[in-house]
Amino acid sequence: MEKQSDLLLDIQHLHTAYRLQGKFYDAADDINLTLKRDEILAIVGESGCGKSTIASSIIGLYDHKNTKVTGDILYNELNLVGLNESLFNKIRGDKIGMIFQDPLASLNPLMRVGDQVAETLYYHTDMDEKARHARVIELFNQVGMPRPEEMYEMYPHELSGGLRQRVVIAMAIACKPEVIIADEPTTALDVTIQAQILDLLEDIQRQSHSGIILITHDLGVVAETADEVAVMYAGQIVEKSDVKTIFENPLHPYTRSLLNSMPQSDDTDEDLHVIKGTVPSLKNMPRSGDRFAARIPWIPASAHEVEPRVHEVAPGHWVRCTCWKTFHFEDEDSTQKATAASGE
């Protein structure tokens, strides 16, 4: 029993499709992920690659008319896909907490922040008003808010960005959820505040032994906090591994390109690496073949699989397609090819 509950979320063959002009397009395409207890799973990728789609599919917050979700999201053997709304309401906020990117947009501007956190407790616990108040103060202390009694009475606009995000986190962890989904929790914050919020998330996880899905585009944040990393491109997971492998031995061309385009070298005269082309839009996404192939045109088509699948190249290290075996950056090419490319 103990062993079984180590696995918190088991996502299998998840497809989430959005309706655009009458047709459904997969924004998340065949996602397989697992989240264990005591684990921070980071999902990285650029905008439009389907990171947040996965989050909204797990938590069931999507437009049910125009979204089609298939596959399985197993939470303790309960399938969250197609779960009825009243059951979902019991789980959402109680067993699965969510932290959104923009704290100002996820707080009610007309309600005192303390009451907003207490509201979660009202729906999910049978505490009386006094106990709820006490619990909110306790939570505010836990997320490191100064003068919690005073903060309880504040409205969102009276708080700074860092404090607002702490309120949102307090709300997410109010019922001690087993799964916390953090969708770009620090993107709107300054670096020093970002560091504090990430430390806070780690502390919470250590205390409550929950699992966290951290969705971010910031590779630095991933390197600092994550245990497992899934890299996404155009709706698919292209590489999945533990954090050390991703940064020390990245294999998929997209992961390598992304890491290369980070400005961090000391040599400022060197150009940053640019990935050719653009991320395809949902409608124009190639539905067959390697979706990243168009951005690395110098790699011959024969290097790609016809129907790219994920291969386990080392225990726990999954890479989509086989093109990584022959992949090299354009400027690493033989001199003849390099001159041809620069003449473009």
Binding site: T192, A195, D218, G220, A223, E224, L259
Partner: peptide
């Protein structure tokens, strides 16, 4: 110093030390 130490580093190997330094 505080600002510099708060930048997330892409150095998984030394992330514990980095965190200690930041704290």
């Amino acid at each position: 110093k505080r600002l510099l130490s708060a930048i997330p580093q892409v150095d998984v190997e030394h992330r514990e030390e980095h965190k200690k330094h930041r704290e």
